[in-house]
Design a protein around this nucleic acid. Structure first.
Lengths: 199, 199, 199, 199
DNA sequence: CATGAATGAGTGTTCATTCAT
DNA sequence: TATGAATGAACACTCATTCAT
């Protein structure tokens, strides 16, 4: 092993660079050259670690989702049940600039996922993790007697997740109408309805 | 006696072609050349009927939204208040193949609207029509004593619209998880909570 | 003769339109469509009267030169000899906006004349008329005893014409340096040197 | 060990190619593709070395002017005052084939400078150098008592420069009328008038 | 492995020209 | 004759990809 380069590490470096570029300048500006430059490499190096641009973008989507979910999990520290769920869902809303751009990134992938099987697969796999988490928190909340509704908790989970994504998109498309506080209120009221002792 | 062509008709032809291309291959693949080819014309012909690509995209977006909203309005015939609202919102879900495809089209426009100011403007204007309609139906329902919730009706309207869009996207992205009946149930239950005498 | 259209007249109409477009919006804006529209015809009509765009442009150059020379001749009315010559040459300078644009038109043709034989021929033919006129005025001035210099009058004529064109170009290229009054002074002093009794 | 290319050298290659195309086919024919092809590269290569077409044109203009001015300066070696000025101005005339071609190039740039602000700026900056030189030589000549005329030397400089350019253009446009010797005589006589002890 | 020069297809757009009516 | 719809090549420019070094 003359030169031992950790492939996984390099991929991660590039993916992080891609993420930074997209968040800073938008997905259109994320050309292979711009990504390579941001990563501190020449453009040719990408060849060794990625099959092509699509590969980079898919990896970036995956990494972005992981990072988001991780951040959400971290926000849960110590909390459990409905308190944790509330924290998680509100944390998923694009309340600040960074998360707005993060959502923009994801929105671009939604569209591409309809025509690209590779993107679709990645998209689904990553979504499943978050869904699982919401589901688990709802189950825990039920066991703790925090749930008021008698609805199926799978239904509740999917509705909450859909609402989070729907509100997020609307925030991007109609920012004037949906400020950060309004977003929180709209989602918060929905959670209140589920929670025992909520308004 | 020159060849006389109905400009509006030609625009429609091109818009329909753009629609087909976007539905089939995604909005990224909808280049001016691809659209012209799909319409059966040379690329240069677009000049006569459109100011540029943005003009084509905006016209296509508008045409698509108009078609959708019209169909939704038609479905309301005779109904009023909560019955009409329920019809409207459920009608907005991609429950059949045609509406799934239509949503795919719109998803492409969401993505493009982040990049193109012209598309964004059109997107907002068209969305406002539907929002107004939902708001009016809610007001009518309240006057008819059909509303249970004491929440601000503007908030209710925006949450319902976000939920419809969120569920719709999820249906496209995760079709295995969200069948047509499940979609109806998830949204239906939300409406029930608003409606006086609902479950 | 069912429809008797005067070809020459139509050509002239179009050429005048071309001239107006060029003076108003620059030579780049003078597309065949713009010219046809300005002339009040459809773009297709040009086919009947011109071999192509080059034909239009050459005809426009010719017409422009004729018009300029005619205007200069008119300015001479009554005058003769050196007074007329002075009037003629100063009138050839681009002292106002219209003449600046006129010169811009001509400058475009100078460049094209190096690669296009048709333009070159037209260019030369039209230039000859003005040269002849200057020569004749110089001869008349000499007969009237108004000439001081003993230089060959052909040389004097060509130098004056070159100076007018050189100053004109410089006015276009370096307008800050060469205002209208400065232009007049620079050329005027040169004429003074030729004229008996001049400074 | 990547292929290492001297950027400056490549720019020069492309600039030389642009020069050849303009000389051969005129500035209108100097498209980016034509230039790239002439340089023996694909059209995409220009991106690496130039910001855009304007950059290529400006670099070509500058390179051409530099070459000319340098040659003129070289011709001055040892001379000063009026002798140097005479040498300089006569050297600026297109007396041989090479200089005729060079003037053709410059004529194209004059035309383009009316359209492109970047070219115009470069054109002005480069012209200023020559103007400065003429002005300095006139001042030196005056201090040496070589100047006969009492005219402002700024005026004299600008008239001489305009005359050189005017004569040059006429030589290109009407070569039959203006042979090399005639050109020299016309300009020489003008210089004589300025010079003390001239004819 | 890494570089970065080079490629060439593709983008939206413009426009002189053609030709059926 | 006159129209104006239609063409298709050309424009400058972008960019993912390839590959000799």
């Amino acid at each position: 092993m003359p030169r031992n380069v950790d492939h996984g590490k390099r991929r991660e470096e590039v993916v992080e660079a891609a993420r930074r570029v997209i968040l800073r300048e938008g997905i259109e500006a994320a050309t292979t050259r711009a990504i390579a430059r941001e990563a501190g490499y020449s453009n040719g190096v990408l060849t060794h670690y990625f099959a092509g641009k699509d590969d980079i973008m898919v990896a970036t989507l995956r990494s972005s989702r992981r990072r988001v979910v991780e951040r959400l999990r971290d926000g849960l520290a110590g909390r459990g049940g409905m308190a944790a769920l509330r924290e998680l869902l509100l944390g998923g809303l694009p309340l600040d600039d960074e998360r707005v751009r993060e959502r923009g990134l994801e929105l671009g992938f939604w569209s591409r996922s309809l025509t690209s099987p590779a993107v679709r697969r990645a998209q689904r796999a990553e979504a499943e993790g978050l869904r699982r988490l919401v589901r688990d928190l709802l189950d825990a909340a039920e066991r703790a007697g925090e749930i008021r509704t008698r609805e199926d908790l799978g239904d509740v989970a999917d509705r909450l997740l859909a609402l989070v994504d729907g509100l997020s998109v609307h925030r991007l498309l109609y920012p004037d109408r949906l400020g950060a506080d309004r977003l929180e209120r709209l989602l918060g009221a929905e959670i209140d309805r589920i929670q025992a002792g909520g308004t």
